[in-house]
């Protein structure tokens, strides 16, 4: 199904020191990512965003990141200096965050922001960067790129802002895109539009995508595989289409607690947390149902 994996993560942990001893926000996290769409779901505090940030090298002290393996293509991310990481971010791996209102620079036109990424990573001239940016705006389905290029973030809608973020993140041609709640700040009718543009580009370029979200429906309808995180660990990995058949009581509890159109229940079952779910999971999980064929 896939050649050499894009990303290999083995035994990743992120520890925050605190007055009451160390707190492991992420632990025993192992997975490999091919040229696919991988979803990470979990509730707030489950460690899903911290995992994404640790991969990007953005988990800053006092957080401590440790892993037996953290490899992007042929690069061991654990041994990279801050300077080297800065070159990798944007060029080889990129991240789209939740709200374009906060992640775009408010005092710089959106076109300049996209061009800046191009110039930084590809050493291009101003004219080249502008041409590439306009092309990229076109690729994210912005119909009048020249006009939008000169606009400032407060002048664009949320959906357009997020498409601009995607343009900026993909312009230097990274292999890995981590999207952390990319559509949570957007209206539902805009969500699909932003996701389908992201999907189109990620497919065309043969990239790997990690979609971090708390929205189970969204992840299961968009991704190929889903990792379910609870208390810093992956408790389950399953094919996205088969999330409904999930085995772990936490995943099942979450699914049951969701209100559903057409299935009105008097009372929603509330999640009963089992302290045993906190225990360390030592053997890495496999995807529960393997797709047949090649």
């Amino acid at each position: 199904m896939m050649d050499a994996p894009l990303l290999r993560v083995r035994n990743l942990s992120v520890t925050y020191p605190s007055d009451d001893g160390d707190f492991k926000a992420v632990r025993n996290v192992s997975f490999t990512l091919g040229r696919e769409r991988l979803g990470i779901v979990g509730e707030s505090g489950s460690g899903k965003s911290t995992t994404g940030r640790a991969i990007m090298g953005l988990a800053r002290p006092p957080a401590r990141v440790a892993a037996d393996e953290l490899v992007l293509g042929d690069i061991d991310l654990r041994t990279q200096s801050e300077r080297q990481l800065r070159r990798l971010r944007g060029k080889r791996m990129a991240m789209v965050l939740q709200d374009p209102k906060y992640s775009l620079d408010p005092v710089m036109s959106v076109g300049q922001q996209i061009a800046e990424t191009h110039r930084t990573h590809l050493n291009s001239s101003k004219a080249e960067a502008k041409a590439a940016s306009l092309e990229m705006l076109n690729a994210v389905h912005i119909r009048d790129p020249e006009r939008v290029y000169a606009m400032y973030p407060h002048q664009v809608s949320g959906g357009m802002g997020q498409r601009i973020m995607i343009a900026m993140m993909l312009i230097a041609g990274p292999e890995l895109l981590i999207a952390d709640e990319p559509t949570s700040a957007l209206d539902v009718t805009v969500q699909s539009q932003v996701l389908s543009i992201m999907d189109e580009l990620v497919r065309e370029r043969g990239m790997g995508l990690i979609l971090i979200s708390h929205n189970l429906h969204l992840v299961s309808s968009f991704c190929d595989r889903v990792l379910v995180m609870y208390a810093g660990q992956i408790v389950e990995i399953c094919d996205a289409g088969r999330l409904a058949d999930a085995q772990h009581p936490y995943t099942r509890g979450l699914l049951a607690a969701l209100p559903e159109l057409g299935r009105r229940r008097h009372e929603l079952p509330q999640l009963q947390r089992d302290p045993a779910w906190m225990d360390d999971i030592v053997t890495p999980l496999e995807t529960t149902s393997v797709k047949g064929g090649a």
Partner: peptide, 17 residues
């Protein structure tokens, strides 16, 4: 969830943040 048909771009671009 994810609607592959995307949605109407004209309708969506009109509203500012």
């Amino acid at each position: 969830g994810f609607d592959p048909s995307g949605g109407d771009l004209d309708l969506l671009d009109a509203v500012p943040i």
